[in-house]
Design a protein around this nucleic acid. Structure first.
Length: 838
DNA sequence: GACCTGCTGCGGGATG
C-alpha cells in the first residue's frame, strides 16, 4: 500500500501546472471528508485538483470502485480517463482505471465485472445501469468518492435528477460518501452545491481567465434590421478574420446555419478545402470524431459548429472563437469563449458576428454582463415523477427495495425533498400495475413485492426492456442519410425527409445531395451539384435570450437614453437608437415601451418587455385572451426575443386598457389563464411523449428493433387519450401540463415579467410609422403570411421609404399603403420550406 | 437571383 503525500510543486510544474491556492483548498476539504463544489473558469485545472485530492486522501486504500467519475459525455470520458491515468501512473501506480459508457465493448464490460477498477469513469446513464445490476449493493457500497464533472450541464435537467437519485442511493450504502462537483460559475452556486450533496462546501477556483470579447461590425448600420439571421452579409469580414488566425472555431446557432456558413466559406475560399470542416449534432458520429481529432492535431484552420462543440474535447490549438448571431446568454458565451486558449494562464478570445443591428446592442450588453460577473442560474427540475418511476424499476432490479426505506432515500435527493405521500403511493402503484387504467396489461406489472415485502422485477423480459431504455434524453426519431454505395453522411428528422420527393436536392454534412429513395429509416442519396439546395430544417428547441442578457441590454438602452454610448458597439448603433428615440422612445430598465400604430390591416400594438421569446409567446397569448374576454376580437401575433406584436382588426383602445391587461396575478391564476389562452391540450400531448418514454410506458428501442417516430408518437398519443378518459387524475398527465407551463412556456418567468412591468413606467407612444424596434416584429409576422419572393420585394420598398423618412426630408409615411396585402396571397408558413427551385 | 433559424446530451447482457 502506498501512502501519498501532496504532490510537490516540481511535480506539478513538470506537467505544466502551478499549485494554485484553490487546489490546496480542495485537498484540505477532502482530507476532512467533506463534499464540495469546485467552480472555476474552464481550463483552469479543476480535474487535476480534484483527482490529486482523491489520490492523497484515498490512495492507501485500493478497493474496487473507490472512485466513480461521472461525465456528461462519452467523448469526455475517454479524455478524462487519459488525464487521470497520467497522474495516477506516478502517484498511485497500484490503482486501476477504466471507463464505462455505452461505447464500452461487451468484453471490456465483462472484464470490468470480473475485477472492478479502482476508479471508473462513466456517464449518469451508465451509472443508473450499474444500479440496476442484481449485485449493485455489494459492488457500489464500496464507492468512497463520486466526482461529477460539468455539474452545471446536468444540474438543470432530468439527467441531473436521475443522478441525484443515484447519489442518494450510494449515500445510503455509504453515509461517508464524498461527492465533488466540477462546475462553471452559475448565479445559484449555493443551490448547485446543495443539490449535488447536502452540506457541500463551495470552493472557488481560478477565475483569472482573461477573456477578450469584440464585435465584427458591418460596413454600415442598418437602422431597420430585418436581414434574416444567417448573417452572410458578414462573410467577407469573417473570411478575413479566419485568415488572420492559425485556428478558429465558428459557432452558429442552428444546424442549417452551420451548413450554410460552411458552404459560403468554401465558396469564398476554395483553397480552404480540406482545411475547414463542419460539426453539428446530425453529422455522422465517425465524421465528427475525425473532425475533433484533426482539430486537436492542429490540422484544421477552422471548424464551423453548433453547440455540439460547447463541451468536449479540449482543443488546445484553438486560437479564437467566432460567434455568429446572438449568443443568447452570458453563460453560453463564456462557455464558447473558453474553447479558445484552453489552458491555465492563456487568454480566451471570442468575436461576435451580429446578424442584425440589435445584436450589436447584445454584444455590448454581453461584455458588460461578463465584466460585472452576471451569469444565469440553472435550476433543478422539481420532483419529476417520470424519472422517479424509472428509478423505482431500476432499484427493483438492483437488489429490490422496501418502500418505506426507499421513500426516505428518495426524499434525501433534493429534487424530491417535498415529494408527497400521495405522489409516492401513486408512483408505487404505477410500477406495480400501471395505475388504474392499465391494470389489465401484464406488461405494466413491472415490479411486484415478494413474500418478504421486497419489491422486485419478476420478469426477465421486462428487466431487459427496462435496461435498454434507461435514461432521460428523448430525441426525435431520425433517419440515416447514406450514399447508394453505403457511406453514412448524417441524420435528419424523419419529417424533413418526408417532405422531399426523389430528385430533390438538399445541403447536408457540407455536401449537396440528391434524394434517390427512402427505405425504412434510411434515405439513400447521391452527390448533386451545389448551388441549388434546400436547407434541412431540424426540429429543435427554441433558445430564448436569457433574463440576464435582456436585463443587460435594457441597461445599455438606459445609457443611450442619457446620451452615453460607452463602447464601439453602442457608438455604432447610435443612429438606430437616436432614430428610435426620435420617432418613439427607447425602452429601459424602469420604462416599458409600447407603440400603437394603425394601418389598413388594423391596429398594431408593439410591446417591448425584453423577456425572451418564450415569455413573449405566453404574454402575447395572455394579452390577447384577456383583451378578448371583454370585447370579442381576433388577434394576429408576432414575437421576437425583444418584444411582441398584437394586430387586431378592431381598434382596441390600448392606451386605456394596456395597464390593466398587464396586471400581475397570483401563480395559480396565471397558470389557469395561460392554459386557457393557448391550445394547451395539444401542447401537453406533445410534451407527454417524453414523459411516457422516461416513465417506461413506451419504448424507444428494443435491441435489434427500430421504431419510427410516427409509431412512438401514435402510442404516446393513445395513452394520453386513455388516461384523459379513464384516469384523469393520472399524475403523468398532470406532469405533462406542469412541464408545458414551466419548461416550455416558462410561466414563472412570465409571472416575474408581469411583476417587473407593473413596477415600470408605461410609456405608450403612437409613432407615425414603424420604428426601428418595431420593424423586426412586423417582418416576423409577414414571414408567416407571405411567400419569401414577394416579401423580399415588399421589404425593399418599405425599407426604402422608411429610410427616406428617417433621412428627415420625406413626409410622414402612411403605413397603411405600405402594408396593403392585396398583391400577396396568404400562404401557410410551411410553404417557405417546401419551395423548390426548378 | 436573393432569400432563407431554431442546440446539445445517453442508452443491454445472458449464453455458448
Amino acid at each position: 500500500m502506498a501512502t501519498m503525500t501532496a504532490p510537490t510543486t516540481e511535480w506539478l510544474a513538470a506537467r505544466g501546472w502551478k499549485a494554485f491556492p484553490f487546489q490546496r483548498g480542495v485537498w484540505r476539504e477532502m482530507a476532512r471528508g467533506h463534499s464540495g463544489l469546485l467552480h472555476a473558469t474552464t481550463g483552469s485545472g479543476k480535474t487535476l485538483a480534484v483527482w490529486l485530492g482523491a489520490l492523497q486522501t484515498l490512495a492507501d486504500t485500493e478497493v474496487p470502485l473507490t472512485v466513480l467519475w461521472v461525465t456528461p459525455m462519452r467523448a469526455l470520458s475517454q479524455d478524462t480517463l487519459l488525464a487521470l491515468q497520467d497522474a495516477a501512473a506516478t502517484l498511485a501506480p497500484h490503482w486501476t482505471l477504466a471507463a464505462r459508457t455505452g461505447d464500452t465493448s461487451t468484453s471490456e464490460r465483462a472484464a470490468q465485472q470480473r475485477r472492478w477498477p479502482t476508479a471508473l469513469v462513466t456517464t449518469p446513464e451508465s451509472l443508473s445501469l450499474m444500479l440496476s445490476r442484481a449485485d449493485a449493493p455489494e459492488v457500489l457500497k464500496r464507492v468512497r468518492l463520486v466526482v461529477v464533472d460539468e455539474w452545471h450541464e446536468l444540474l438543470g435537467s432530468k439527467r441531473g435528477v436521475q443522478l441525484q437519485l443515484a447519489l442518494a442511493r450510494l449515500r445510503r450504502w455509504n453515509p461517508a460518501l464524498m461527492t465533488w462537483g466540477l462546475s462553471a460559475t452559475l448565479a445559484n452556486l449555493d443551490e448547485a452545491a446543495e443539490t449535488l450533496a447536502p452540506g457541500a462546501v463551495i470552493v472557488r477556483g481560478a477565475q483569472d481567465k482573461k477573456i477578450l470579447i469584440d464585435t465584427l461590425l458591418p460596413a454600415r448600420i442598418e437602422r431597420f434590421a430585418w436581414g434574416g439571421h444567417m448573417g452572410l452579409t458578414m462573410l467577407p469580414a469573417v473570411v478575413k478574420h479566419i485568415d488572420a488566425a492559425a485556428s478558429t472555431l465558428v459557432f452558429t446557432n442552428t444546424r442549417s446555419q452551420c451548413e450554410r456558413w460552411f458552404q459560403a466559406l468554401l465558396e469564398a475560399r476554395p483553397d480552404w478545402a480540406g482545411l475547414i470542416a463542419l460539426h453539428h449534432g446530425s453529422v455522422d458520429a465517425e465524421a465528427r470524431r475525425w473532425v475533433e481529432a484533426a482539430m486537436k492535431a492542429g490540422q484544421l484552420k477552422c471548424v464551423v459548429c453548433t453547440a455540439s462543440l460547447d463541451l468536449g474535447v479540449d482543443f488546445l490549438p484553438v486560437e479564437q472563437v467566432l460567434q455568429i448571431g446572438s449568443a443568447k446568454g452570458v453563460a453560453r458565451l463564456l462557455q464558447r469563449a473558453g474553447r479558445s486558449g484552453h489552458a491555465p494562464g492563456r487568454r480566451s478570445r471570442v468575436t461576435l458576428v451580429p446578424t442584425h443591428s440589435l445584436e450589436i446592442v447584445e454584444a455590448s450588453a454581453l461584455r458588460a454582463a461578463v465584466q460585472a460577473g452576471h451569469i444565469e442560474p440553472r435550476r433543478p427540475p422539481d420532483a419529476p415523477l417520470d424519472v422517479l418511476v424509472q428509478h423505482l424499476v431500476t432499484v427493483a432490479l438492483g437488489g429490490g427495495f422496501r418502500p418505506d426505506e426507499l421513500l426516505a432515500e428518495v426524499r434525501s435527493a433534493p429534487s424530491y425533498r417535498q415529494l408527497s405521500d400521495e405522489a409516492w403511493q401513486w408512483a408505487l402503484a404505477f410500477v406495480r400495475h400501471g395505475g388504474e387504467s392499465l391494470r389489465a396489461y401484464p406488461d405494466f406489472q413491472r415490479v411486484v413485492p415478494d413474500d418478504e415485502g421486497v419489491w422486485r422485477v419478476p420478469d426477465a423480459r421486462l428487466a431487459r426492456r427496462h435496461r435498454s431504455n434507461i435514461g432521460t434524453i428523448v430525441s426525435d426519431a431520425v433517419m440515416s442519410v447514406q450514399f447508394l454505395t453505403g457511406g453514412r453522411i448524417a441524420t435528419v428528422e424523419e419529417s424533413f425527409i418526408a417532405r422531399l420527393r426523389a430528385g430533390d436536392v438538399f445541403l447536408l454534412g457540407g455536401r449537396a445531395l440528391e434524394l434517390v429513395r427512402v427505405e425504412g429509416l434510411t434515405a439513400y442519396v447521391r452527390t448533386a451539384k451545389a448551388g441549388q439546395a434546400l436547407l434541412p430544417r431540424w426540429g429543435g428547441g427554441q433558445l430564448p435570450i436569457s433574463d440576464t442578457l435582456a436585463g443587460a441590454m435594457l441597461e445599455r438602452f438606459d445609457e443611450a437614453a442619457q446620451g452615453r454610448f460607452s463602447d464601439a458597439e453602442m457608438r455604432f448603433v447610435a443612429p438606430l437608437l437616436t432614430l428610435q428615440a426620435e420617432w418613439s422612445a427607447l425602452p429601459g430598465a424602469q420604462r416599458l415601451l409600447a407603440e400603437v400604430l394603425d394601418s389598413n390591416e388594423g391596429r398594431h400594438l408593439f410591446l417591448f418587455p425584453f423577456a425572451g421569446r418564450t415569455v413573449h409567446l405566453g404574454l402575447a397569448s395572455l394579452l390577447a385572451w384577456r383583451a378578448g374576454r371583454d370585447t370579442p376580437a381576433t388577434f394576429t401575433m408576432a414575437i421576437t426575443d425583444y418584444g411582441l406584436e398584437l394586430l387586431s382588426a378592431t381598434p382596441i383602445d390600448w392606451a386605456a386598457q394596456l395597464r390593466a391587461l398587464l396586471a400581475p396575478v397570483d401563480r395559480a391564476t396565471l397558470r389557469e389563464e395561460v392554459l386557457a389562452s393557448l391550445n394547451a391540450s395539444e401542447l401537453a400531448r406533445r410534451r407527454f411523449r417524453e414523459i411516457a418514454r422516461i416513465a417506461g410506458l413506451i419504448f424507444h428501442s428494443h435491441p435489434g428493433e427500430v421504431r419510427s417516430q410516427r409509431q412512438l408518437q401514435a402510442s404516446a398519443s393513445l395513452y394520453f387519450d386513455v388516461f384523459r378518459e379513464h384516469d384523469p387524475d393520472n399524475r403523468l398527465l398532470r406532469q405533462a401540463e406542469a412541464e408545458l407551463l414551466s419548461a416550455e412556456l416558462d410561466v414563472d418567468a412570465l409571472g416575474r415579467a408581469l411583476a417587473r412591468m407593473a413596477a415600470q413606467t408605461l410609456d405608450l407612444r403612437q409613432p407615425a410609422r414603424p420604428t426601428p424596434l418595431a420593424f423586426p416584429l412586423l417582418i416576423e409576422r409577414l414571414r408567416e403570411r407571405v411567400s419569401t419572393e414577394s416579401l423580399a420585394q415588399r421589404l425593399a420598398r418599405m425599407l426604402a421609404e422608411l429610410e427616406a423618412a428617417a433621412g428627415g426630408d420625406a413626409p410622414a409615411v402612411d403605413v397603411g399603403s405600405r402594408l396593403a396585402f392585396g398583391d400577396v396571397q396568404d400562404k401557410p408558413a410551411s410553404h417557405r420550406t417546401r419551395r423548390r427551385r426548378r
